Amino acid sequence: MPNILLTRIDNRLVHGQVGVTWVNHLGANLIVVANDEVAEDEVQQDLMEMVLPEAIGVRFFSIQTTADIIHDAAEDQYIFLVVKTPQDVLRLVQGGVPIDRVNIGNMHYSEGKTQIYSTVSVDDTDKEAFRKLKEHGVKLEVRRVPDERPDDIYKFL
């Protein structure tokens, strides 16, 4: 069983808050970015690696590759799994990745989305993904930083 400490939805993926604050809080030594586009984009990967301390490893995999190899993680890898969307989390769960808790940190507002929390905007496809994750028994919390009180996403939907 892989040591997945936390899965976070953050459409910015890896940035200072994720790479320092959350990593330190969790005690993670590896960030796995599961995103189809970033897995193929070395420029984005390089930019994300720049914000990480040297002691923290980072891997960039597609959603499918993550599902295929996460069970091969070493016992001493303490994984912080970062994705862009609730649909990505749902695909991982459906692919057999053992995710029981998801932190929703940042989902930017865009056309067609409704802001439900200061840092979270959703559309109908996001809501549907959240409902399906709940059916899979995944706990969903909104929390930007570790010292903030988590809120249950369902009270906002």
Rank of each mutant, 00 (worst) to 15 (best):
D124P: 02
R101Y: 04
H136L: 05
D72C: 05
D126W: 07
L81P: 08
L140S: 00
V89D: 10
E75N: 12
Y117L: 01
D126H: 13
V83R: 08
K113H: 14
K134D: 08
I104W: 03
P86E: 09
V138E: 00
K139Y: 00
L81E: 03
A129T: 08
I79Q: 07
K132F: 02
K127E: 13
K127D: 01
F80V: 09
H108T: 13
V120I: 13
I79D: 06
F80T: 08
V97S: 07
G137R: 00
V97M: 04
K134V: 07
Q87C: 06
A74V: 00
S118G: 05
R91K: 15
V122A: 08
S118K: 13
S110P: 10
V120R: 01
D126A: 14
N106S: 04
V89I: 14
M107R: 08
E128W: 04
K134S: 12
A73F: 00
L90K: 04
D100G: 06
I99D: 00
R131D: 10
T125W: 12
D126N: 13
D76T: 11
Y117F: 12
G112F: 11
R91T: 09
E111K: 15
N103D: 02
T85V: 11
S121C: 14
V89N: 09
N103P: 01
Q87Y: 07
I116L: 05
K84D: 12
M107Q: 14
K139D: 02
T114F: 01
T114N: 10
D76K: 10
T119L: 01
V102I: 04
V102D: 02
H108L: 09
A129I: 11
Y117D: 06
K113M: 15
K84Q: 14
P98S: 03
M107Y: 13
H136W: 04
L90Q: 05
K139I: 07
D72H: 08
K134N: 07
L92R: 09
V83M: 13
H108E: 11
P98Q: 02
N103F: 00
L92A: 07
V122Y: 10
T119N: 06
D72L: 11
A74T: 01
S121F: 13
K127W: 04
G96D: 07
Q94K: 15
